[in-house]
Amino acid sequence: MGNNTPRGALPTPISSRTEAFDAVRPRDRNKGDAHTDTTQDPLTFRHSSSDQVLKGSTVPSVYQSSEDSQEPPIGERVEIETESGEESFVSMHQDEHDNHPVLSDILTRAIAVVGSEEVLPLAVSPFEKGTMGMTANEVLMIRGLIHPLVYLDFVDLQKFSI
């Protein structure tokens, strides 16, 4: 039976490992798979009123993904595309860097991104002891388990106001 099989050794601890970034980064682990070039082909957000929504606002979360990677942090693939044609996110962002977002911009854009998905409840207790200041809601948001609109309410959007 398998229970008689000797246990394998635990993996080598992190402090004793020698892997380098280039050997583990996605393009090297998945040779042969197409990988999105984050500087050349940014994902785009398609929305009928995207020009107006994006104007004067700063995108709160941008995710560049390879084809085989998992979902972006907010559980959505964010695509941005303006009617005036394709434009890299970086250049678009640079053009707007002097404009600060206002509360209505952020809410409008968030609604456009997440649509009318079911809203999950917030956790009310702090995250487990030892993680220094992270709340359960922040951790769940990172993992994509909290609805973005709910999280925006949790983090107090007034912080965005200048």
């Binding site: 970034f21 393009r27 500087t39 709160p60 560049q64 970086v90």
Partner: peptide, 12 residues
């Protein structure tokens, strides 16, 4: 993640 990506290194 929230910063405008500056390179593929950043994305990776």
């Amino acid at each position: 993640t929230s910063m405008a990506p500056s390179s593929k290194y950043h994305g990776d």
